[in-house]
Nucleic acid binder design. Structure first.
Lengths: 175, 175
DNA sequence: GCATTCATGTAAAAGGTTACATGATTGG
DNA sequence: CCAATCATGTAACCTTTTACATGAATGC
């Protein structure tokens, strides 16, 4: 139930609505975990039922802000201390890359070049997000920064890999 | 429907049984995509119905080998050429890392140290797999090697990141 | 003979995506 | 006034995991 804990982690910082949280899953949090609003709204309702969050007063356009409770904070801590993270990764680019030998080398080359471009663009986008962030020295900020640096490193690694892969295909075109 | 194409990609190299494929998802293929036998067996049956693979004669212990058909190869190529890979990643370690500021610094430090150890161990395991592989010069092998190098790079990046994160926590222990 | 590995499946539950649906507020 | 954005939700479907279930062959 990682989505629940992802939401608790966000709400531990400050109260937020489902809409706010959805937007965050589109950029900062989404770097690391993804979720759609169709999954977030029902989950927040269930979390309120379970007493992990409380619904505040309704704002304009029936905006509902959720605040984490003591029980919610306790559950978040329990998850961090007890639940070992799952390390299985899913990388659809690398999954496709494994099978590219069935294509013409020119198509495989185009594949890696396109992917390299996508990774470079994502890297540039995240870099500029990093640059525009006003980092205070709070603990929350420091850990946010640690994760962001991890994301930057990861994207750069993938970009370099895709570029190297393209080079490999270029160097050995025929069988 | 990535599982279906992951299986087609494997079968494009040589025929295999559900059991063989399951084992591969535990190490080589599993680096990039994961699946359990409970998902693989029904999927192979559906793929046979769809004419993408054919079931060979039964071996000992009702072992069933599947061979890719021309239609299966065509579908694999179509997927590689037309389906853009999904780039959303899920990294539960980084998801937890975002919230570690709610814990005592000592617990956060222990978290990163443990993760660094896990990544180093996974890296060593994959490195030795790489070393023991007898790479021929075939196209299939070359692309397999490209993906393996990508996996090594990724794991090393994560190990270095976790070590750096631990260092960050050590350097700024209090608020 | 017995433990391990090989080998295949089903069913229920959980997690996640896509399609559908609605309405309020803000800014130009 | 009108477009864009804010804001919330349901239902159907697909994907993935967990639990249950069974039996044959191999190696010691």
């Amino acid at each position: 139930m990682s989505l629940r804990h992802a939401l608790l982690g966000q709400l531990a910082g400050r109260p937020a609505s489902g809409y706010d949280l959805t937007k965050r899953f589109d950029y900062s949090t989404g770097l690391v975990w993804s979720a759609k609003h169709t999954q977030i709204y029902p989950e927040l309702l269930k979390m309120a039922e379970a007493g992990l969050v409380t619904q505040g007063a309704e704002g304009p356009r029936s905006r509902r802000e959720y605040t984490i409770t003591d029980a919610g904070m306790a559950e978040l801590r329990r998850w961090l201390l007890e639940k070992r993270p799952v390390h299985t990764t899913r990388n659809e680019t690398m999954l496709q890359a494994m099978s590219l030998w069935v294509l013409d080398p020119a198509d495989a080359l185009a594949y890696f070049e396109r992917e390299a471009g996508i990774y470079r663009a994502a890297l540039a986008r995240l870099q500029s997000y990093d640059d525009t962030q006003a980092w205070d020295g709070s603990a929350r900020d420091r850990f946010g920064r640690i994760v962001l640096k991890g994301g930057l490193r990861e994207l750069e690694g993938l970009a370099v890999w895709a570029e190297w892969a393209a080079e490999q295909v270029r160097e050995t075109p025929g069988e």
